[in-house]
Nucleic acid binder design. Structure first.
Lengths: 261, 261
DNA sequence: CAATTTATTCCATTATTTGGAACTTGATTT
DNA sequence: AAATCAAGTTCCAAATAATGGAATAAATTG
């Protein structure tokens, strides 16, 4: 019944790293001291170690910034991700069929992390979304992924979720969300009805990643003025089919058993 | 005179993380045990902590894979990188003027880490390069950045460099490299004459990032059949000008003093 | 189902981390 | 120019978390 055994020194180091990375702008020692709650001596050594490891950079004015090692580690993890590899052609096909932006996301705790994206034009920065984490409860892929969880896992996520009203349509409590998740389980697809960002809608479908205990999903997203709810409903079958195809191909290519070449 | 004081527990954890991330394919406990040289008990606890922190994922078949937290941390660091922000419009302009791929890279130890990229078509995967690390001694940006280092820093890098012959044109020893770096200091630009990849050339120019003690650079890269050395020499002035413009703008926008909004 | 490989747990010892306080450094004010 | 203040850095005895070899459990194989 115990859950909360810490991760010792590593946990503290990661908390400090996260505090610097998630802050906006370079952080002075005192800023981090306040944010992290660690004692001065401890924090000082922690920061030194993080700098030595290349996870942080200390500028000449003594401010701390994210280091380059994170980028390199992420680059490797991303380009070696075999699930993304399997999904990619399906995302492209879905993009060709719909003309709209297609996302691949994986659930982590109560958040969806976007792992790939195929978009129409490069209006926004290339791949600016990859690695971005959004709340699960108000995104299409997020809700689709939640629909795969069993009772106890879902409850754990709900307990962590803070229902913030991003738009007038955002779920405000677990009750309505759970009701919708029932529907999603029945239908096999989820909608985002401008719940996270105003004027943005999507239709999503869940995928279980074989081998890992991960819940994932894909979505087709578009601006409300161009993509009606009717349009999304018409696309739902396509999205479900793509999700199922990815799932089946992943079973063959990734699991069960070892995956490596 | 002492240099080698470790980073304690964090250092060990990062070494294990790196071993898993840099391996190709999911890693079993025994694989990592061999690669890391840590004792069983220690490694086991280290891996557990890394999994708990979301830096690794353990699959049902007990193999370890990179976790999603790396992507999220990298996403934040990248999108909040103000130097990249300053450079970006200049990269675009350079791309428009030349029609070829433009890179922004930052030196870390003996490697160049690519931090941004503007490319002609999306033939290769979008932004597949971002976060990629290549040896400094055989890349245009790498050599350009090395030309900014003072004697002692350069020597430290050279000591770490292993001169591997990627192509017939790759530098095979520090001697020829140092000679070329002299030239680069004089000219203000560097060439990659198919030294890292056959049939790929580039012209690069160095940038010092104000405030941080970082050496960076930009380059225009193209396939040998399309981009002659003469063409690259003709572009050199453009690249130098863009590099200088980025440097000056960065001085105004980033340093000296605090940067945050 | 016995043999073998692989993963996990245990725990006395040891090394690292801890954190309060003292010390520097550098800027600002009197 | 001295005094004041704020921010960063260093120190070290005490507390704690990490260590690592050996025993156990679990999975795989012949």
């Amino acid at each position: 019944m115990d859950e909360a055994r810490g991760t010792g020194t590593l946990g503290k180091a990661m908390a400090v790293l996260e505090a610097v990375v998630m802050a906006d702008g370079p952080q002075r020692f005192t800023d981090i001291l306040a944010r992290s709650g660690q004692p001065r001596g401890t924090l000082y050594r922690l920061l030194s170690h993080l700098v030595e490891e290349g996870l942080l950079i200390q500028r000449r004015d003594l401010c701390y910034e994210p280091g380059l090692r994170l980028l390199t580690l992420a680059h490797r993890s991303w380009s070696a991700n075999r699930f993304r590899d399997v999904a990619e052609p399906h995302l492209r096909r879905l993009h060709e069929l719909t003309g709209e932006t297609v996302h691949l996301g994986i659930l982590r705790d109560a958040e969806i992390v976007y792992v790939d994206k195929v978009e129409s034009r490069q209006t926004v920065r290339m791949s600016s979304q990859i690695g971005k984490a959004s709340p699960a409860y108000c995104t299409g892929i997020g809700k689709a992924a939640l629909s795969l969880l069993d009772r106890s896992d879902l409850e754990r996520v709900l307990a962590k979720t803070e229902f913030r009203a991003f738009t007038p349509h955002t779920h405000r409590s677990a009750a309505t969300l759970v009701a919708e998740i029932e529907e999603i389980r029945r239908d096999g697809h989820a909608f985002d009805r401008e719940e996270h960002e105003a004027e943005i809608r999507c239709v999503a479908a869940p995928i279980t990643i074989p081998g890992s205990e991960l819940a994932a999903g894909i979505s087709v997203t578009g601006p409300a003025y161009r993509v009606s709810m009717e349009q999304l409903m018409a696309w739902a079958a396509l999205v479900r089919a793509a999700a199922q195809a990815i799932g089946e191909e992943a079973v063959i290519r990734l699991g069960p058993g070892r995956g490596g070449p």
